[in-house]
Simulated scan of single mutants.
Amino acid sequence: MSIGNSPEDERPFEDVSEEALPSIGRALQQARIAAGLTVDDVSTATRVRIAIVHAIEADDFAPCGGDVYARGHIRTLAKHVHLDPAPLLAQYDAERGRPAPTPAAPLFEAERIRPERRGPNWTAAMVAAIVAVIGFVGFTLFKGDSEDGSKTQVAEGAKPSTGKTASPSADAPKPTDPKPDPSESAIAAAPRDKVTVQVSAVDGRSWISAKDHNGRLLFDGLLKQGQSKTFQDSSKINLVLGDAGAIQLYVNGKKIEDDFQPGAVERLTYTKGDPQVG
């Protein structure tokens, strides 16, 4: 017979203290692995960044940015890996010496949700009244202008209509022609201390681009037939004509007589001393 401890007595004692409990990060990691999920899977599902998931599983809560965010991440991760978040949150608070949150008193809740009694909104009423007055005045002025226009037409000899559309008579004034492009004399009034360039699409449409002496873009687009653009700068205008044959140029009040070919692309520069192609 041997004297001493039996084999059963030599078994290590089971540690049932709080230190034997897995840490928060370890518990979350074990639950994730048991669920067959990777850190990427958890991050994608919970929208918690991968770096923060790794930090929490290593019990490093600093990247969370504070206790409020750490508790929220713990709760989110625990639910996703099928753990009860309450024990983990209690363990987190105990480790940091934070008291457990207490529910609000029923009286406080009742007073908080009690609707606040408000008086009449005089500001909204005043705004509505002002809008109504402005609308009435505008309608009155519009109606007065319409009646004055009708009286003027009758006084000039036009027959008032009686429910039928009056056909245009020979005496009715013809519609005015569209305003013609500025003539050479009008363009000649351009100031001499600046360079003025007018581009007119007289024989078709053309893409044009215009820049000032600093290279700032003044226009870049399609000029349809009959349209004109006028550009002015203190010293220089740079032009690019996509179809120079369709364009007529006036520079500092003078017509440019260059024989541009249809479909030709021209790059031109004009200054205060032109017309001379730079």
Rank of each mutant, 00 (worst) to 15 (best):
R11T: 13
N238E: 15
H82T: 13
L141T: 05
S183G: 15
S209C: 08
L37C: 05
D243G: 09
G36A: 05
R32W: 02
I237F: 03
E147W: 06
R32Q: 04
G25V: 07
S43N: 05
H54N: 11
K151R: 11
R114N: 04
S169D: 07
D203E: 13
T44G: 08
S228G: 08
A155D: 11
H82M: 13
D212R: 07
D177Y: 13
A90D: 13
L222V: 08
A264S: 15
K236V: 12
A51T: 09
A201W: 06
D243I: 10
L141G: 03
D59N: 15
A20D: 10
L268M: 11
G245P: 09
K159H: 00
H73Y: 15
D259Y: 06
K254F: 13
S228Q: 13
F13I: 14
S17P: 01
D171Q: 15
P275C: 10
L217G: 07
D145Y: 02
G245E: 13
R47A: 12
E10Y: 06
A110R: 07
P85K: 01
I56L: 11
G215D: 07
A170E: 13
L107I: 06
T176F: 09
T176A: 15
A125E: 05
S206K: 10
Q232P: 01
Y250D: 10
E184N: 06
P63Q: 09
G278A: 14
V133Q: 00
P85H: 08
A45C: 01
A34P: 04
D67P: 02
A158F: 14
A51W: 03
E257I: 14
V39P: 00
R114H: 06
A158D: 09
G263Y: 12
G278S: 14
A94Y: 03
F260N: 10
G135K: 01
S183V: 09
T76V: 09
D145E: 09
E19D: 08
D41F: 01
D60I: 04
I3G: 08
S23L: 05
V16M: 08
D60K: 06
L88H: 04
A45S: 10
G25C: 03
V251S: 02
L28N: 07
L141D: 02
I208Q: 05
A264W: 10
N214R: 14
L218D: 02
T44L: 12
G242S: 11
Q276H: 15
L141R: 04
A105V: 01
Y250G: 11
D9L: 08
A20F: 04
S185W: 06
G242N: 08
A188W: 04
H213G: 01
G97R: 04
K211T: 13
S43R: 00
R117C: 00
L21N: 02
K143V: 02
T230Y: 02
G4C: 00
F108T: 08
Q261M: 12
S200H: 12
P168K: 12
A34Y: 06
A100E: 13
P262G: 10
V127P: 00
L107A: 10
F139I: 04
R118A: 02
G36L: 05
G221R: 10
W122M: 02
K174W: 04
K79I: 12
T196K: 03
I130H: 00
D181C: 04
I74Y: 04
V251W: 05
V42C: 04
